[in-house]
């Protein structure tokens, strides 16, 4: 890095989340940095009052005293709110271990799925806070209410409510999808057109409405980086 390159500002500003992210070159003299900060902050006037500031010295290490001086300066001069260093980034090695842990998290996940075999008949109701997987059919007049997803490996002709009371990310999937009524979270749909078992279909919420799609074509979870517990 060029110590005397005074044309190029040693400071960059951007808004990240609810804070102002200030990247600076800690190799520059403190008074020069302060000068440059003043230029930028003056232009923003009242916007910086009480703003949360993150002071990021980039890849450089051991510049705590520069950060400390700049923090005092910003607080005194511009009345900013909290000033902090960027959250500590995980080391690459550490990150890899973490990813591996997520990838195999299903090993020690307590089951979140209620799996049933058989036929849900007219007048029968299955209620669970979990996801529900039915190896069988749901007859007209049968009812399923689940906290999460509903998957029917067979014909679904009854009434289903997934994601109760308010999980709109839930889906309803069936090999032969012709439900009387589908509810996902607070959204309700009836009179859903069906391929009558020609394709595997699923319902989900998109743009505040329930939509039904071909499961294999839409492949909603195919792009996840690794198997995740749902």
């Amino acid at each position: 890095m060029n110590m005397t390159d005074r044309n190029k500002s040693p400071i960059k500003l951007k808004g990240v989340g609810n804070s102002l992210w200030v990247t600076f070159d800690p190799t520059q003299p403190v008074d020069f940095l302060q000068e440059e900060l003043t230029k930028l902050f003056k232009r923003m006037k009242h916007l910086v009052v009480n703003a949360r500031i993150v002071l990021d010295p980039g890849e450089q290490e051991g510049c705590d005293d520069v950060v400390k001086k700049l923090r005092v300066f910003l607080k005194d001069t511009f009345d900013v709110g909290a000033v902090s260093k960027p959250p500590v980034k995980r080391a690459v090695k550490e990150e890899r271990i973490r990813q591996r842990d997520i990838g195999s998290s299903w090993h020690n996940s307590a089951s979140e799925v209620l799996m049933l075999t058989g036929r849900v008949r007219s007048g029968q109701k299955i209620t669970t806070k979990k996801h529900v997987l039915i190896l069988g059919d749901v007859n007209p007049g049968g009812e399923i209410v689940a906290g999460g997803d509903i998957v029917v490996m067979g014909s679904l002709c009854g009434t289903v409510s997934a994601g109760q009371p308010d999980n709109e990310d839930s889906i309803v999937l069936s090999l032969d999808f012709r439900p009387t009524q589908v509810q996902i979270g607070g959204f309700l749909a009836a009179g859903i057109p069906s391929s009558r078992g020609k394709t595997v279909e699923f319902a989900s919420v998109e743009d505040n409405a329930i939509v039904v799609k071909d499961y294999l074509k839409a492949n909603p979870f195919g792009r996840l980086p690794q198997p995740l517990v749902r």
């Binding site: 008949r121 007219s122 007048g123 029968q124 007209p140 007049g141």
Partner: peptide, 14 residues
């Protein structure tokens, strides 16, 4: 008939 099937199904469950 659909309504007869619905009722028979309920009875079968019981």
């Amino acid at each position: 008939e659909v309504s007869s099937i619905r009722d028979a199904d309920r009875i079968i469950g019981i």
